[in-house]
Simulated assay, not measured.
Amino acid sequence: MTETAAAGQKEQTKAWNKRCNKIGLKYFVIALPPIVLLMVTFMTTLQYLLDVTGPLVSGELASGQPGFNEYQAAKDQALIILAVLLAFITAVFYFAHRWWKKSMRAIGPRPGGYPAKSKRWLGAA
């Protein structure tokens, strides 16, 4: 009798793991492309900011020289773009993680309970 129960629990665990893996795959398919796109844009804009602020910080361009105002405007624009991109990256991470946790709670606890205390947020077994 216990062998049958153990075999049934193994099958349930296997099915639960399969659903878990599907949710993980959906998470990466949904969350990864926007995050990668935003991070590439963020890094490119950061590189641009560093290129623009280089002459300003090193003293090559001082107030009153030709091009100084254009460099200051470009620096300000890059900072605004970086702030917006950072807000978007944070929002994508937040909503994707929230969706993942909600999906994991929807499939219920693992058959037989969780071996670690780190999974308490999923609910009691």
Rank of each mutant, 00 (worst) to 15 (best):
A106E: 15
K101Q: 12
L46I: 02
K14S: 11
T90W: 12
L86K: 05
W16A: 02
A7W: 06
E3R: 02
A125I: 13
A7G: 04
T90F: 15
Y27M: 04
G24I: 04
F68N: 11
T44W: 10
Y27L: 04
I81H: 01
L37C: 15
F28Q: 10
Y27D: 09
Y94S: 10
L49T: 07
K101T: 14
I80V: 15
L86I: 02
R19G: 03
S103Y: 02
P33K: 04
T90V: 12
Q47G: 12
Y94F: 12
A116L: 06
R105D: 09
K117I: 11
K119M: 12
A5Q: 13
D51N: 08
W99P: 08
A73W: 00
L61A: 05
Y48W: 10
D51I: 05
D51P: 03
Y71A: 15
P111A: 08
E60D: 15
K75Y: 05
K119V: 01
G108R: 05
I35H: 08
F93R: 05
A62D: 07
F42Y: 14
Q12A: 15
T13P: 08
F28M: 12
G24K: 10
I30F: 02
L61D: 08
I23P: 06
K102G: 12
I23W: 01
N21T: 13
L56T: 02
Q47V: 02
L56Q: 10
T13F: 05
Y71M: 14
Q65K: 07
G123R: 04
A7R: 00
V92D: 04
Y48H: 13
